[in-house]
């Protein structure tokens, strides 16, 4: 597929440049542990634990990872701290690997709902996704179902213009469900491949907003039963442990099947992605490493972990 080919070229370079700040902080610390310790003792584990927690991996997931490491150290009779590096990478990969059908939506008529709390970059993500999918030859329609935030409509309209896709929108303050209804009707009528719905930012503990989300979902279910459904939660990489909570609540209200991790170009370590994958078993599907329209990339966990840990990796450069 065209989209896939495009992804391969320069993915590494882009991810790595985007992640470079991330990587430096994280890996330098990691390497100083793996190289600095002479033996695998309690202090070594403690340092490792500290590093993971500092990377927003979270207490629970850190414990899981450390336990796993302890086990495999015992099982494989590992004595060198430096060997632990590979083991740790392996277990993170194990946690984060997406299921095989994670991207099967690209072959069917799909409705993608993009949800998340306020300010994580939903509208921007929808804009970027629209542009990507359009480029790969899909017929894309975006729906501006964020009828709450001032000027959210306009923001998405700009993105739609940039990407060259159609947009369905309504006035500020209208029922977002009606926008979704219009969008679904339009998608069917125009034989659209992918309908991307941008929704209002909502805190996961606001019950009526979550109900509103469920309502939008019901409308799509009813009006467009044949479509493949995807619901993605957008998470800011700088978010801390609360993101696990967010994802869990959204999952209950709207059954998530993907995560888009944005703003990975700061110094945030994005360890929260590991935490969520581990605790909720929802795969990360896309990752945003910059502001450019091409800076949203398909998430490849092997490459992610490798890029995150390996400073001197140059095989693709």
């Amino acid at each position: 597929m065209a989209e896939e080919k495009k992804e391969k070229t320069g993915f590494f370079a882009r991810l790595k440049s985007g992640l470079s700040k991330t990587r430096n902080g994280f890996v330098n610390g990691m390497d100083s542990i793996f190289k600095g310790f002479k033996s695998i003792d309690e202090e070594f584990y403690e340092e490792l634990e500290e590093m993971l927690i500092m990377g927003d991996v979270g207490v629970n997931t850190t414990n899981v990872l450390i336990e796993k490491l302890r086990e495999s150290v015992k099982k494989n009779h590992v004595h060198e701290p430096s060997e632990c590096r590979e083991l740790l990478i392996e277990s993170i990969k194990e946690i984060m690997s997406p299921p095989e059908d994670a991207y099967s939506f690209t072959d069917e008529k799909t409705v993608i709902m993009v949800v998340g709390v306020n300010g994580v970059g939903k509208t921007t993500t929808v804009g970027k996704l629209a542009s990507r999918m359009k480029e790969s030859g899909k017929k894309v329609l975006v729906a501006a179902a964020d009828t709450f935030r001032a000027a959210a409509n306009e923001q998405l309209t700009r993105w739609a213009e940039k990407a060259g896709v159609d947009i369905v929108s309504s006035k500020e303050g209208t029922d977002p469900a009606s926008v979704v209804y219009d969008a679904v009707t339009a998608a069917k009528a125009r034989n659209v491949d992918v309908l991307l719905c941008d929704t209002a930012g909502r805190l996961h503990n606001k019950k009526n907003l979550m109900d509103e989300l469920a309502k939008m979902n019901r409308i799509v279910d009813r009006e467009y039963p044949g479509a493949k459904r995807e619901t993605w939660v957008v998470l800011d990489a700088t978010t801390g442990q609360n993101a696990v909570h967010q994802a869990r609540e959204f999952n209950e209200a709207a059954h998530l099947n993907g995560i888009v991790l944005t703003k990975m170009d700061g110094t945030a370590k994005g360890g929260i992605a590991i935490a969520i994958s581990s605790e909720l078993n929802i795969p990360v599907k896309y990752i945003g490493v910059g502001e450019g329209i091409d800076d949203l990339q398909r998430f490849d966990c092997d490459e992610f972990v490798t890029a995150l840990f390996d400073v001197s990796d140059s095989k693709e450069d």
Binding site: I53, D56, V117, G119, D236, T238, G266, T267, K269
Partner: peptide
């Protein structure tokens, strides 16, 4: 500062 920021809040 977003109240939900994680460990990175310090760097920012």
């Amino acid at each position: 500062v977003d109240a939900m920021t994680g460990q990175d809040a310090v760097n920012v």
